[in-house]
């Protein structure tokens, strides 16, 4: 049995409880006394103490005030602990200071949690490499004692390269968030194939593979069904001749229809501007008393297909007698029936 299980067992069985507590206390005390007053462990202890006070406090401003101290001590301690340490990327042989990255990450989280300067995690991630550059650079300016001075020519050259490389990494993060922003504006873009892209790769997770391909046609299908519902609503209460004249005039109503459908489906989302709804009415070839209504939703934005993307729905408007006529006059009139087929890609 090893020591850990022994200790756990002792705790569980409450065996020698007093003895264990005494031992632990002694060892902790020994560790405490071994901490130098001016060291990173001391800073860590101060930070932990501040967090403890933070937990005890009630008022939100008092909490924030203490948390500033807690974060500052944590940053100082982490920076101090990693000072001068360098890690090497295997194979490539690049050297980097992991401490700067870790400290910068803590700083980003601290700023983010206090809503100070950085308010979004995207901005925080973009700022991370730049803070890391600052943390990696500033020790170069320190001199023994409490003095500072410019590093020598070689050191300055290294600093220039360091800052530029970190800026480049920040730019890559920013580019990523730029693309994500565009995708949030135009989610329909995700229904395309990204195989040919020189800049982005698609990484599919199982969860979105299930949603996957059909969303494209589903989006357009929603547009078409909404358009159908809108037309139906406009036609309610009309008899055949009124409906006939309304439908014949549909070209002039088109912008209005387009706007209504986009408002219903997309509300204020910018993607609505990139769909175009068209409605065409023609005489049916088979029965002369019926009309063909063709609704088309066309995607105007970027797409991996050169010919773009469009979905079409064919509807038949035919003349029928009114279902329950109220009066003799109504028996003379005829109503209409709107039947639609499933949408097809064109």
């Amino acid at each position: 049995m090893n020591r850990l299980t022994q200790i756990l067992l002792d705790i569980v069985l409450l065996k020698n409880a007093g003895q264990i507590v005494r031992n632990r206390a002694q060892r902790t005390q020994a560790w405490f006394t071994s901490i130098k007053p001016f060291s990173w462990e001391a800073m860590l202890m101060l930070s932990l103490f501040s967090w403890f006070v933070y937990l005890l406090l009630q008022g939100i401003y008092a909490k924030q005030f203490v948390s500033i101290f807690a974060w500052s001590f944590l940053i100082i301690s982490s920076d101090w602990a990693f000072l001068g340490q360098q890690a090497q990327v295997p194979l490539l042989g690049f050297k980097f200071q992991q401490g700067a990255w870790i400290t910068a990450a803590i700083l980003c989280v601290a700023l983010l949690s206090n809503d100070f300067i950085l308010t979004q995690w995207q901005t925080a991630l973009t700022a991370w490499p730049i803070f890391a550059a600052l943390f990696a650079a500033y020790p170069q300016f320190l001199r023994p004692g409490l003095r500072w001075g410019l590093p020598g020519a070689a050191g300055r050259q290294d600093l220039v390269l360091l800052v530029l490389v970190h800026c480049l990494i920040a730019c890559w993060f920013q580019f990523h968030f730029l693309i994500q922003g565009r995708l949030a504006d135009y989610p329909y873009l995700l229904n395309n194939s990204f195989e040919d892209s020189l800049f982005v790769t698609r990484i599919r997770l199982n969860s979105d593979r299930a949603v996957g391909e059909n969303t494209a046609s589903r989006q357009a299908a929603t547009l078409l069904t909404t358009a159908e519902a809108t037309i139906r609503q406009a036609l309610t209460g009309k008899n055949w001749s009124e409906a006939y004249s309304w439908l014949s005039d549909i070209k002039s109503l088109q912008p209005d229809l387009n706007q209504q459908v986009m408002k219903a489906v997309y509300d204020e989302q910018p993607e609505g501007h990139l769909w175009q709804m068209t409605a065409d009415v023609g005489r049916n070839a088979i029965s002369s008393s019926s009309l063909d209504l063709i609704l088309t939703a066309r995607w105007l934005g970027a797409s991996s297909r050169p010919e773009g993307y469009a979905l079409r729905q064919r509807c038949l408007v035919s003349e029928t007698s009114l279902p329950n006529p109220d009066s003799f006059a109504q028996m003379q009139q005829t109503g209409f029936q709107l039947t639609c087929q499933a949408p097809v890609e064109v």
């Binding site: 580019f175 994500q180 995708l183 995700l190 800049f199 982005v200 990484i203 997770l205």
Partner: peptide, 15 residues
């Protein structure tokens, strides 16, 4: 939200 488009190709190409 997990992103599903990553600019890895851009990074590799630029490197």
């Amino acid at each position: 939200m997990v992103a599903n488009l990553w600019p890895f190709r851009a990074i590799m190409l630029q490197a």
